[in-house]
Design a protein around this nucleic acid. Structure first.
Lengths: 205, 205
DNA sequence: CTAGATCCGGACAACGCTGTCCGGATCTAG
DNA sequence: CTAGATCCGGACAGCGTTGTCCGGATCTAG
């Protein structure tokens, strides 16, 4: 609809004289630091309050201005995708390490369960963004690569498909997300047990 | 903080003279009809858009004014609880019918899965409302009552507890909610299969 | 038929969030 | 040292949602 109506200059004249503070330009090094701070803040806020948490909270926690947030991540989805991409890369890296089994990968994904649940929310949103879907596929690929070995070792039922794995992950992620803070590990372990899948949970939170 | 600032009379004088239409009073019969229409509309809207959907959408779909909505249900939680209560009563009624098995109840709950998922969201919210928690317990009780029979028939693993059942329900509910509209039944069946639990899905949507 | 009680519908103000815009501080080049 | 480029922080307007308020239509009693 009517474009540019958001531009206050078109409504109020050149500008109301409100006082505005200028902020230092710390150079391109600070730009990268800001981006990192925003990503970390977003990871924490999203994990605590879900991916619909106010972005203003993210910029506040990161200690940067709103402007910087929107400069680095034009919209909410860009920020969310950036956060998830970090997690996906962690899983992919783990999948390449020698001696790693399916159970370890499932444990790793479970550790990121709260974010995973939010991720699943997005993957299955009514307008499944292409970038998000691609990230989901990368996780699926990483897991599927270790499925044959697990099947050969008799650790998972014969008929289990890669899609089943993703379904199981989303189920556990949801369960963990809904569990009270202090019982998440126990709930996760029980959930995997109900699914008859072996899991090795990595240390700490 | 400063109370009553919401009251426009304290700010703008007695009232701005804006024209307002009056609406007919159709008597107490209409009041009950309104309440029913609101519940039905809420059920549909919540199922489609989640329990955080705008309440204005509910009143619009029900074809009643905002005032009527807030008169019957003072806040969002009251409306949500009322909707869930209907579903819980359905499950409880089914549990009392002769010849019903655990698999039937699980199927029934699965049919309300989208609402169940929203329900789980609320049960595990940071401020778990007492009314919501009580509803959750009622479902748990209904399911648990049929657990011994299922165990005796060898249909579920020996160590399964009532809590496990609720956990499984929440997992399936999450999976179904995230599945695309057309695949929900298939996903639900597969999810129950991964959990090694028998389920009999009732007809229709 | 009249007076009063009831209660419906929707206008409306407050509020929180999003995304934009710009003054001005800092950095770099010459 | 000066001029220009860069980019940061936060003010701010628009927007959608919530919950309140009231004019007046309908119903009921006498």
């Amino acid at each position: 609809m009517s474009p540019a109506l958001h531009d206050s200059r078109l409504r109020d004249g050149p500008r109301s004289p409100g006082r505005r503070g200028g902020a230092p330009n710390l150079g391109p090094r600070a730009a990268a630091a800001n981006r990192a701070a925003l990503l970390e803040a977003a990871r924490e806020i999203f994990a605590a309050d879900g991916v619909n948490a106010p972005l203003s909270a993210v910029s506040r926690r990161a200690g940067v201005g709103q402007g910087s947030l929107y400069r680095h991540f034009p919209d909410r989805l860009a920020l969310v995708v950036a956060v998830f991409e970090e997690q996906v890369e962690l899983v992919e890296a783990a999948a390449e390490e020698p001696g790693v089994e399916l159970a370890d990968l499932l444990g790793l994904v479970t550790r990121h369960a709260v974010l995973s649940a939010a991720f699943v929310d997005l993957v299955s949103a009514q307008a499944p963004d292409m970038r998000v879907a691609a990230l989901g596929r990368r996780v699926g690929t990483a897991l599927a690569g270790h499925l044959p070995a697990a099947q050969a070792a008799g650790k998972v039922r014969p008929g289990l498909t890669p899609d089943d794995l993703m379904l199981a992950v989303s189920m556990v992620a949801a369960a963990v997300t809904h569990a009270p803070e202090g019982e998440r590990d126990a709930v996760a372990l029980r959930a995997w047990e109900l699914l008859s899948l072996e899991v090795r949970l990595p240390e700490g939170p």
